[in-house]
Simulated assay, not measured.
Amino acid sequence: MKTIYIVQYNHNEDANTCNWDLVESEQEAKLIDPDYEIASVDDLYDMMAGCGYIYEGLIKVKEGIVKAVSSTLYDGLRYIKINIESNMMPA
């Protein structure tokens, strides 16, 4: 099981913006953003929707342990389903 971390960088106070990314290594997260956190289910959905990266299998996130599964519909579109495994909560 992997843990996913969210990091923020390139903060621009004037524009009130920053970049963010999800990483699987806690050491990498610490190097990028000392204030890193464990990612949420919404963060996983945003990453998958924004760039198409698919996380699959058991994943530790802020809400607990989740199971992410990707599937392809008959018309070729891809959808993602993330189930919270209730027997494994909380993380």
Rank of each mutant, 00 (worst) to 15 (best):
E24I: 15
N10S: 07
S71N: 08
H11D: 03
D75Q: 10
D42M: 15
A29Q: 05
M89K: 00
N12R: 14
M88R: 12
Y9P: 02
Y9E: 00
M88P: 01
D46N: 13
D33M: 15
V66L: 08
S86K: 09
V7C: 05
V66Q: 05
D46T: 09
A39Q: 06
N16K: 03
D35G: 08
A15I: 11
N87G: 04
G64L: 14
Q8K: 13
S25M: 09
E13D: 10
D21Y: 03
K2W: 01
G64R: 10
V23W: 07
E37W: 13
I65H: 05
V7H: 02
E85S: 07
D14M: 13
L77G: 07
N16E: 12
G76D: 06
M48A: 08
I4P: 00
V69E: 11
W20E: 01
D46Q: 14
E37A: 04
Q8F: 13
E28F: 12
S25N: 10
Q27G: 06
T72F: 09
T3N: 09
I54P: 01
I84E: 06
N10Y: 06
A29V: 04
T17V: 15
G76Y: 10
Y79V: 15
K2C: 10
Y36G: 08
T3D: 02
V61R: 06
I59Q: 07
S25W: 06
C51L: 08
E24S: 01
K62S: 11
D33L: 15
E28D: 06
I6E: 01
Y36S: 06
V69T: 04
Y9S: 04
Y45P: 00
L73P: 00
P34R: 12
T3A: 11
L44H: 03
T72R: 11
K30N: 00
L22H: 02
I80F: 07
E63Y: 06
N83A: 13
T3M: 02
A39R: 09
Y5S: 05
A15M: 15
D43E: 04
E85H: 03
I32G: 04
L31Y: 00
S71Q: 12
Q27T: 12
I82V: 04
G64D: 03
E37N: 02
N12T: 12
V23D: 00
Y5K: 04
A29T: 12
V7I: 12
T17E: 08
K81R: 05
I65F: 10
D33T: 14
D42E: 10
E13A: 13
I82G: 04
M47L: 05
M88I: 00
G57A: 05
S40C: 01
Y45S: 00
G76S: 08
S70M: 12
D21F: 02
D46R: 15
V7D: 03
Y9R: 14
Q8E: 09
M1G: 07
K67F: 04
M89G: 00
N19R: 08
D14I: 11
I65V: 03
D14R: 13
I38C: 10
S71F: 12
A68E: 06
T3Q: 09
Y36T: 14
Q27Y: 11
E37D: 05
M47Q: 08
I65Q: 05
E28G: 02
E56C: 08
M1P: 04
V69S: 09
I80E: 00
I59E: 05
S86E: 10
V7A: 04
S71E: 05
V41A: 01
T72L: 12
Y36E: 05
E37M: 02
M47D: 05
L31E: 01
